[in-house]
Amino acid sequence: MEQTREDKKKPYIKPEVTRFPLRPEEAVLGFCKSTSAAGPSGGTCRSTLCQTAGS
C-alpha cells in the first residue's frame, strides 16, 4: 500500500542544546604529548627540544 505524506512524517523531536567540553590547549597542538623522555636524552621521545610536555 502506498504511504501517504502523513505517514512519512518523522516524529517531532524538540531541539536541545548540549554543551561539549573543548580543550583548546590540546586541540591546537601546543604541547608534545610524549612525556616519557623529556629533554635531549632521546629514548622513545624524538623531540630534542621537549621541555613542554603537557595536556
Binding site: 597542538l29 608534545c32 624524538r46 623531540s47
Partner: peptide, 18 residues
C-alpha cells in the same frame, strides 16, 4: 638553528599533515 635537529620534528610534522 639547532644542529642535529630533525626539521620534521614536533610540532611541524603534525601541523603540516593536519
Amino acid at each position: 638553528r639547532v644542529a642535529g635537529h630533525d626539521p620534521l620534528e614536533f610540532p611541524l610534522d603534525e601541523l603540516l599533515v593536519n
